[in-house]
Amino acid sequence: MSGYSKTPEALARLSPEQFRVTQQNGTERPFHNAFHESKEPGIYVDIVSGEPLFSSLDKFDSGCGWPSFTRPLEDEHVVENRDTTHGMIRTEVRSTHGDSHLGHVFPDGPRDRGGLRYCINSASLRFIPVAELEKEGYGDYARLFTRDNGGAA
């Protein structure tokens, strides 16, 4: 899949919560979101542009109440910006092509997996299960889930 972008049609399909999070830099409630406890194998893409962002293989339970990942699926699809809102200094994570607010990255992730915790709003993501990767245009990522690559296939 290529040609990732933010289109008026994609924005019109967003729920009010997805719009608030992705377009107005919002944050959804912890522990009350779609992917916080999900363990299904697959990839997470930007709800607006469809660009591939994270893999379930890099997801872990950080206890923070939001989906947490140790790294992006494709570095070029994620932009990190300094965020000084709410009296804190943090690193915001946005999608490159969709310019969606995704969440924040923190240096308190698992040390044995790089030490980063990408704390991401479920409202900014769409999940593509492994069985649907090819059909949805993300077939190149199916290889990640084979036994040769440490997946469960």
Rank of each mutant, 00 (worst) to 15 (best):
residue 96 T to H: 15
residue 111 R to Q: 15
residue 33 N to L: 00
residue 85 T to Y: 08
residue 30 P to E: 10
residue 119 C to Y: 09
residue 36 H to N: 14
residue 7 T to N: 04
residue 11 L to V: 15
residue 117 R to I: 01
residue 124 S to H: 07
residue 16 P to Q: 00
residue 14 L to F: 02
residue 105 V to K: 12
residue 141 Y to W: 06
residue 44 Y to E: 00
residue 149 N to A: 14
residue 22 T to M: 07
residue 148 D to P: 07
residue 139 G to A: 12
residue 66 W to T: 04
residue 137 G to N: 01
residue 132 E to Q: 14
residue 145 F to G: 05
residue 127 F to N: 06
residue 115 G to T: 13
residue 140 D to F: 14
residue 77 H to I: 15
residue 8 P to D: 03
residue 132 E to H: 09
residue 78 V to H: 00
residue 107 P to K: 07
residue 90 R to P: 07
residue 126 R to K: 13
residue 123 A to W: 06
residue 124 S to V: 08
residue 115 G to W: 13
residue 151 G to N: 05
residue 21 V to H: 02
residue 108 D to V: 05
residue 96 T to Q: 14
residue 90 R to A: 11
residue 100 S to A: 07
residue 96 T to L: 13
residue 59 K to W: 08
residue 60 F to S: 01
residue 147 R to S: 13
residue 77 H to T: 14
residue 137 G to H: 06
residue 118 Y to W: 12
residue 5 S to A: 14
residue 113 R to F: 04
residue 135 K to E: 10
residue 150 G to C: 10
residue 45 V to H: 09
residue 116 L to G: 00
residue 84 T to R: 15
residue 42 G to K: 10
residue 124 S to N: 01
residue 47 I to Q: 09
residue 68 S to D: 07
residue 133 L to P: 00
residue 147 R to D: 13
residue 125 L to E: 10
residue 50 G to M: 12
residue 78 V to A: 05
residue 70 T to L: 08
residue 50 G to F: 11
residue 114 G to N: 11
residue 55 S to K: 08
residue 50 G to Q: 11
residue 21 V to F: 01
residue 13 R to Q: 14
residue 57 L to K: 14
